[in-house]
Design a protein around this nucleic acid. Sequence first.
RNA 1: GGUGGAGUGGCUGAGCGGCCCAAAGCAGCAGCCUGCAAAGCUGUAAAACCACGGGUUCAAAUCCCGUCUCCACCUCCA
Length: 457
Amino acid sequence: MTLSLFDSQSQQLRAFEPITPGCASIYVCGPTVQSAPHVGHLRSAVAFDILASWIRFGHGFGVKLVRNVTDIDDKILVNAAAQGVEWQALAVSVEGEFNSVYQSLSADADLTPHATAYIIDMIALIERLISRGHAYQAADGSANVFFDSASWADYGELTNQAIESMEGEEVASHGRRRATDFALWKAAKSDEPDTAAWQSPWGLGRPGWHIECSAMTRSVLGEHFDIHGGGLDLRFPHHENELAQSRAAGFEFANYWMHNGLVTVGGQKMSKSLGNGVSVEELFEQGSAVAVRYWLASAHYRSTLDYSPSAVAEATAAVARIQNFVKRLPEMPTAVAASDLPSAFVVAMDADLNVPAALAVLHDSVRQGNVRLDSNQDAAPEARAVAAMLRALNLNLASEVSVDADLAARVEELIARRADARANRDFELADRIRHEISQLGVTIEDTQTKTTWSLNG
RNA sequence: GGUGGAGUGGCUGAGCGGCCCAAAGCAGCAGCCUGCAAAGCUGUAAAACCACGGGUUCAAAUCCCGUCUCCACCUCCA
């Protein structure tokens, strides 16, 4: 089976053929650590984690998933100043928030390079662009350096736009020649902290947005790598500019471009400027981390995903269904391989990561397994299939909240007393105990052999 | 104005020429289980006439033309 991916540059499905056989290099645009993460960031992280996970588990390739951290940027400086903190401190604390969310969603990258660690690489790249005639220092004598968009005939190739149609009303300024030229290096400003300025051949300053990704992909993955990903809203100008400057510098750059769809709230894009972002806290109040991950994966990665509390509730129910099947199993297989995957699942995943269709196969296996268990048949084949599919999707059902030991002991004791009462057919007492247990915020479930319990909500 | 994407049952959401009298999940209904519940499991209805109007084809949700509506990018954003 071959994996076909929708390449958003050529706008068609293409068979995935890695540059190095058996190895995939993926670069995904991570956060600019300026303010707390929101649902949109999580969707992107989960989408590309599933991509990496599928290539790794489903195809047995080695995968290097890189997700950068842009830790120097206008907004970081602005927000830090507004909060009266050092910009580095803000960047570090916001990054910490991102990391903890990524971790709870099982969406960690293999490598997370930071922009500020690659300033030297960026300066070298800018010098290279200048020497090749694709960049220029500002005519006003400042340290500003711009990419010369007119010098690069392919500018606009990623988003299929003609450069003439992009020049809006904006007047060239800061020594910039054309509206479509963009900053590679920004001169230091007097109202910005000294710590946010670096020495360069053009004077004190800091990198423009876009250049960090070109520098880091080259340093970390080389001049030619397999997949570049990110949110759809990064296609232009960010990725278009990245592509232009990298190609103009003489690099082949990415073979495939992938863009995940955006998250909306009530049909409107969730964005910082609209202020309608759903916070991570708010999201995690609606369901567990697994349920949230399931919800984020429940629509195809290129579709728009609309947020609502009930959507997460549905995901919670779907996850519970799978969990209940696993609970019913005498044993959940741990050592699974791609060969345990149902072929329909493989077909779905290979078709540009059709996770919704893959989840349908997962539920089919769960239902078939339940039927077998109901008739006291061995459900081991279904168990293996389910375990393998969960693994392929990197859905970790086990990540449950830990329970206070004292509470657990009390509940266990009450359940034992209730069991005695039921054995003695003293149902009035049994019901009183059940009520008492519910007062502890715990729901119990009777099965044929035992009583299980779980925390409410 | 330019560049893309979308409109499928009560809801979410796949399918993108014949396997579709349209997957899966949720909700609904019924049965099983239970001391009773809850939970769970199983099964299952409906006009889903696949936004609307034409067309191509032996065959269309799927292709073509037109219309309507919605969304995104073209400014910082995953």
